[in-house]
Amino acid sequence: MQKDTKISVYEVVGSPLCVASNDGQKVHDRLAVALKKARRVVLSFHNVSTMTSAFLNAAIGQLYGTFAEEQIRSQLKVEDIEPQDAALLKRVVDTAKLYFQDRQRFDQAVREVMEDDDDDDA
């Protein structure tokens, strides 16, 4: 049985202050590779003192644009996260799901318009 892949947010960012979107992107890129390889990932927030929604949106929120919710739920776990930070992460995740639902609706609408245009041209 494969061991879980552990990613330390503190190690990736190099600071207890996880606040910038581009730092979140570094965490995302590692998570995305592991999820694509069907690995189970434990994301550790040990030694992280401060996070923002911008960081978490880039690190985790954008995963919902690439991976199915079920896949993320089954492969990704978090540990050593303070309750206040877990509450923020939950908000980010719930908002990301809504964001990508809307975007799917938007993309669907654009596709329909383009199909109508094609029909008119035909």
Binding site: Q25, S53, N57, Q62, R91, A96, Y99
Partner: peptide, 18 residues
């Protein structure tokens, strides 16, 4: 609400609400 002008792969819409 969760209004955001963000488009693209990274979601947004929480900062001012928080």
């Amino acid at each position: 609400k969760t209004n955001t002008t963000k488009e693209g792969p990274v979601p947004g819409g929480l900062g001012l609400k928080l």
